[in-house]
Design a protein around this nucleic acid. Structure first.
Lengths: 165, 165
DNA sequence: TTAAAACAATACTTTTTTGTACGGATTTGG
DNA sequence: CCAAATCCGTACAAAAAAGTATTGTTTTAA
């Protein structure tokens, strides 16, 4: 379970834009400099973000990039969706199957689908709630907040487990 | 954010073993048949699971595989850890960096690290609590349980968000 | 003893992902 | 107008992941 390079670096670039003032833009060379990535690579991410309408561009000599919405209006899920090559729909899950069988052998009693569904929900809920604004707070603030959420969830989980046991 | 093929198919194979009776084994050809994968591919997963001591093997003509522990004693995290090629330690996060810079330019103020940490915690908590036993319950039972957990977490999250707001 | 069935392990091929290169289009400013 | 700086887009190269092939070892059973 991991995050692709596209998702990681694309998010970083989006975060760079999040702290811009109204009307300001940031060019690809500047972003590349700040994140220590190549200009070409940064351009690639920005193109994807633009195509998803998360970013607007200004062409020409003094051009650059800016978010189309306020940082608090762009969720991390928005960013990830823009960057991930192909989004597998929930329903499509058992169709993208690398095995021999023409029809997914697990369609009748797929043992791991419920697990997938909940884990996806878990991640999705989290990435939907977190916004670019959250990520430009001071690291300590963000960390505290996120830790609290985690802790609460863990405790909630334990209670539920006991109830079910 | 997705699960690797190794993790997915490896988990499926592990789940197949989870419903075996004491002393029984399941051969690679049998598992391959049930999951619709090639025998060679299944063998690859089983080797990894064996090396992580999650699975024991019986060689020879009537050979096969079995779990070394009870299904409720093997978490999904155990399985994933066994299968993922290289586990990035939490501390190592900012070292595995594909950019130009010799030193990770974000080490001083890494905007996305807190997010990574919490998301990892989220996922880890979940995979640690879920066991192979959970996955061999009826789909409906598992689904209900996991949905409850998700719902509880979501609500908890919202409350916290309001408190912080 | 020998053949068959199965695990063990590594090497190899194919596909996907990652990252770079380059030529074209657009704007600024001299 | 022309040069420089920038976005735009695709094509290409390198690396990693996915999946297959092959050869060897172990055990069963005729």
């Amino acid at each position: 379970m991991n995050v692709s390079a596209l998702e990681e670096y694309g998010l970083r670039c989006a975060v760079q834009l999040a702290s811009l003032a109204e009307g300001e833009t940031l060019s690809a060379p500047e972003i590349a400099e700040r994140e220590g990535l190549s200009i070409e690579y940064v351009s690639k991410f920005m193109l994807l973000l633009k195509r998803a309408s998360l970013v607007r561009t200004v062409r020409g000599m003094k051009g650059g990039f800016a978010l189309t919405r306020l940082p608090e209006e762009i969720s991390l899920k928005d960013v990830f969706d823009a960057l991930s090559n192909k989004r597998k729909a929930q329903d499509e899950f058992c169709k993208s199957f690398a095995g021999k069988s023409e029809t997914c052998v697990r369609s009748s009693a797929c043992t791991i689908r419920p697990f997938w569904e909940i884990l996806s929900l878990y991640v999705e809920e989290f990435t939907t709630k977190m916004t670019l604004r959250d990520l430009i707070q001071s690291e300590q603030v963000t960390l505290n907040k996120t830790r609290n959420i985690a802790q609460a969830n863990v405790e909630q989980y334990r209670k539920l487990k006991e109830m079910n046991a």
